[in-house]
């Protein structure tokens, strides 16, 4: 709301203020309950990325730079990938194989409750972080970055 000129009209901005949090929350729900209900890491991650893209389309680039700058989103994406591989590696030491579900083998957990599935919810969260940051990065890079040719640079220097 700091810069009223960028982005879309005031009506779109105030509606987005209301619903952007709910969209993000719905993505979190899809991710966290991915082992109980339809959905999972990929779908939830795309919903969370869509909430950031909604902010970017309605408010402009500046607000998204404050909320989720792209240097941080590269970190989040790499962290998601490392978490996914790390869980798989822990399976070698504790469960007897790459991607072994060692948490379920040790602790079990009652089915159809939130604390079940072993490593599956952790992998879901890792994939969601990766997909959210990745798709947001693709949209950010494709829509804001411009290729500047040498001729254009010389033109702008002449204007100055």
């Amino acid at each position: 709301m700091t810069n009223n000129k960028s982005g879309l009209s005031e009506i779109v901005k105030s509606v987005c203020c209301w619903i952007e949090g709910f969209i993000f929350l719905f993505g979190c729900y899809i991710v966290l309950f991915g082992h109980l209900t339809p959905g999972g890491g990929f779908a939830g991650g795309v919903i969370m990325a869509a909430s950031f893209i909604l902010i970017m389309l309605s408010f402009g680039k500046e607000r998204v730079d404050l909320l989720f700058p792209w240097t941080r989103s590269t970190l989040v994406e790499s962290f998601g990938a490392l978490l996914f591989i790390g869980v798989a590696w822990l399976g070698i030491y504790y469960g007897g194989g790459f991607f072994a579900n060692f948490l379920h083998q040790k602790f079990g957990g009652t089915p159809f409750t939130f604390l079940s599935g072993g490593t599956i919810p952790i992998s879901n969260v890792a994939i969601a972080l990766k997909v959210m940051a990745g798709l947001f990065l693709v949209f950010y890079v494709l829509s804001t970055h411009k290729v500047i040719l040498d001729e254009d640079i010389s033109k702008t220097e002449k204007d100055k």
Partner: peptide, 18 residues
Amino acid sequence: ETGSANIVTSVILDYRAY
């Protein structure tokens, strides 16, 4: 074997995690 009630997730992230 996996403790996941959603069979699709249990296949994606356990049996066929590769």
